[in-house]
Design a protein around this nucleic acid. Structure first.
Lengths: 234, 234
DNA sequence: TAGATTGTTAATCGATTAACAATC
DNA sequence: TAGATTGTTAATCGATTAACAATC
């Protein structure tokens, strides 16, 4: 393998690791952030790959390897300073910034999302809500005034919205996603059970509890064969 | 590789493929089920790995390989009969059965879950709700009378509950999961942002929208580098 | 210093994909 | 039959883990 130059001396916010970091590594970083946050709250000042691995149920080697994509954050013989590693990882993930989020669809699910208090503490601010039902437009949901879909492009630009949460009826998913992409939104959290097609450069993550249940029933159905417990987060 | 005997002639519900099927394959099967269901609704009677792959954004080879773990469901030169393949996959996943589910925690989130209409059509029946707050016990949520946690073991046994959905405050997650495991529950859908520890043989899937957002911000933060769009479902 | 733990390389493991004989 | 597509093997690719020199 060729020597990889990582340009960590470049101005923050403008550079990324030169060689692509595997997506599976990126997906683990938020979990590291969460565990480090917990340790910090417990007053733990120093940790190591062994301890982190035990908490997260991954091997210590994997944690060290994952971190090595981004730099050297520990000290041999000592481990990692929790506060420092946490701060670095948050910066890498862009979690030192605030993100403005739009919710599309204010039905039952959209309502629950807009009233869910769990996004704000992590820097995600629900700043706009849209619905194509005239009866919903103008109502207040979670303290936000619902706008018509026709206002999408302008509001996304005006309010610097970079992330959208889609909670519309399944039949509208692809159309809504297309509109979001056209407005320049490149990160979409999809609460509908539909696989939306997006162009390169746009990320979609789906929240799909039924899918999660449907893979677990496989193991319940074949109780005869002892299987290992396994935990998946998504 | 040794020859693998797959005992598909054994009585249904009592046998599993002799060699372990990779978990990543099991996790894809529900998506195949969903796509096949859509095709069926559209009146498509026959499909093939090419078409399925296009829909699901995976390679045709992967679909054929995944299916080969369980048997031979297609015909060379023709493809797969949608109705037949769908029925086989549902049986493999245990989706031809009905599953009784308990919801633990009837706060804001538990309320939304109990009122969410998306579980029942797929054979998951929310049949019981529990809460440790005496003020909530006895109230009706989503048509279900809330029971105290002390009733858990009895109700799980009486109502044949095999799956639980955890929607309690984070601090209670591990304790609730421990109680569920003690009652014999082996599949848990965890809506809290806590990594619960479970013994072998118990499955946990987490629904964690903040985690999903936090991995997408990485790609938003480094806009300079064009990245491929990618879609994850969990 | 001695002991501990990192960062990194090399080995292993497992999953994906390409290719093609079998066969509908 | 000729054409198409499966089921399966072998090749490739990528991710995880083990091992250890570097070094705090």
């Amino acid at each position: 393998m060729a020597i990889i130059s990582r340009d960590f001396d470049a101005p923050p916010g403008t550079s990324a690791p030169t060689l692509e970091v595997p997506e599976v590594v990126i997906d683990r970083l938020p979990q590291y952030v969460r565990t480090l946050t917990q340790l910090l709250e417990e007053g733990v000042e120093v940790t190591n790959s062994q301890q982190l691995g035990a908490q997260l149920q991954v091997t210590p080697a994997q944690i060290r390897k994952d971190l090595s994509y981004f730099g050297r954050f520990g000290k041999q013989g000592r481990g990692y300073r929790v506060r420092h590693l946490l701060s670095e990882l948050k910066q890498i993930l862009g979690l030192d910034a605030e993100w403005n989020v739009a919710v599309i669809g204010v039905g039952r699910l959209g309502n629950a999302i807009l009233n869910y208090p769990g996004f704000n503490p992590d820097g995600f601010h629900l700043v706009a809500a849209f619905d194509n039902n005239p009866g919903n437009v103008g109502t207040e949901v979670g303290g936000i005034s619902v706008q018509p879909m026709t206002a999408l492009a302008n509001t996304v630009a005006d309010r610097d919205i970079t992330i959208a949460i889609v909670a519309v009826p399944s039949a509208h998913t692809q159309s809504v996603v297309d509109q979001l992409v056209a407005c320049g939104v490149r990160a979409i959290l999809n609460y509908t059970p539909i696989n939306a097609q997006v162009p390169d450069g746009v990320r979609v993550r789906s929240i799909d509890p039924v899918l999660a249940l449907q893979s677990m029933t496989y193991y319940l159905a074949y109780q005869g064969h002892p299987t290992n417990g396994h935990q998946t987060t998504g």
